[in-house]
């Protein structure tokens, strides 16, 4: 029998990283306070959205309309449950599907233009979604919004998971959702597909000359991001039990963007996760400060400081790798000198 060689330089950071994740999973055992759990649940929603953004950024495009896909998912699920009388689970599933289909259609039209033009097109798309949600009274109830019900209880023999009684079921549902999303994105990142995505961002012309069809891979990334963002939006609407046009607009898209950039886009899963959780928790606690306006001031200031003082092109997650390189006394990576200057 072969003895498997354990590389401690890989294993120890993984074990240390597993500790906070394990703590997160077992939080409801120690505290079932609605307050604490809600913060984590809501940051989970933004984690998924930020991962979607990072996935699109992997192909070199930055979308400024990710909150629109959350709104589409939320409205799809809300309309199916409230207006059509579907039950929660199928409509939750359909929310992702509808959001994915819309992302596919929009993506295959607008992804032909890249760079800043794509950002502005997605920004306009997000605003169109908001204006339509605000004004199509018959379908979306306009500015009053829709009130989707909470999920039906799941009966497992004598045991019943009741979503109305406490937030713990929501908590595990969210953890499951984040886990599935992370798994999918992680696998995509590891696979040939992830490499292709990265090649599009790194050198578009070279990638095209290697026979990579640009549009196909951009649309794939956009659609995958759209599907999961739709799920996040549906969850958001059902957890808060309301969805209005103002909840998911341009400023939320911008927040998604800030979260994944601050977290770091060098990894598709860990960066957005760290960024979204940290910034969401930070902004929740800041908004409890008594002085009005200090919340926005400190939030903006913190993000600017992170961007200015971190090494360029990296996020918070890269500090983690750097820390472990210091600990194991590994040589610094050779950095490719930039072409400019």
């Amino acid at each position: 029998m072969m003895i498997k060689y354990i590389d401690w330089k890989v294993t120890i950071p993984r074990i240390v990283a597993a500790v906070p994740i394990a703590i997160l999973v077992f939080i409801p055992v120690f505290s079932t306070s609605r307050d604490t759990l809600s913060i984590i649940i809501l940051s989970g929603v933004w984690v998924i959205a930020a991962m979607g953004f990072a996935m699109i950024l992997r192909t070199g495009q930055f979308s400024m309309g990710q909150a629109a896909f959350m709104a589409i998912g939320g409205y799809a699920s809300a309309i199916l449950t409230v207006k059509m009388g579907w039950s929660f689970w199928p409509s939750f599933f359909m929310a992702g599907v509808i959001s994915g289909i819309i992302a596919l259609i929009i993506g295959s039209v607008v992804l032909r233009v890249g760079n800043i033009y794509f950002s502005i097109i997605t920004l306009s798309f997000g605003e169109i979604v908001r204006i339509l949600a605000q004004n199509l009274e018959g379908i979306t109830h306009g500015a009053r919004g829709l009130i989707p019900p909470s999920p039906e209880p799941i009966v497992l023999g004598s045991f019943e998971i009741n979503f109305d009684a406490s937030v713990v079921p929501y908590y595990y549902f969210m953890i499951l959702l984040v886990a599935i999303t992370s798994l999918v994105f992680w696998q995509i990142n590891r696979s040939r597909l992830g490499g292709t995505f990265f090649s599009l961002a790194a050198n578009q012309i070279l990638a095209e000359h290697q026979g990579i069809y640009l549009m196909k891979y951009r649309v794939i990334a956009f659609t995958v991001a759209g599907i999961f963002t739709g799920f996040a939006g549906a969850f958001y609407a059902h957890f808060l039990e309301i969805i209005t046009p103002y909840m998911l607009g341009l400023w939320e898209s911008i927040q998604i963007m800030i979260m994944s950039i601050v977290g770091g886009v060098s990894s598709l899963v860990a960066g957005p996760l760290v960024g979204a959780v940290l910034l969401k928790v930070l902004s929740v606690y800041l908004s409890r400060l008594p002085v009005y306006g200090i919340h926005a001031l400190l939030f903006g200031g913190a993000v600017v400081l992170v961007l200015v003082f971190l090494p360029k092109g990296t996020g918070l997650i890269d500090l983690w790798k750097k820390f472990w390189r210091k600990v194991f006394n590994e040589p610094e990576w050779y950095e490719i000198p930039s072409i400019d200057e």
Binding site: F62, S119, I254, M257, I258, I261, V262, A296, L297, F299, G300, G301, V303, V304, L307, V308
Partner: peptide, 10 residues
């Protein structure tokens, strides 16, 4: 872009 957007909040 992200830095100037954060400046909006600031």
């Amino acid at each position: 872009g992200v830095a100037t957007i954060s400046l909006i909040f600031f």
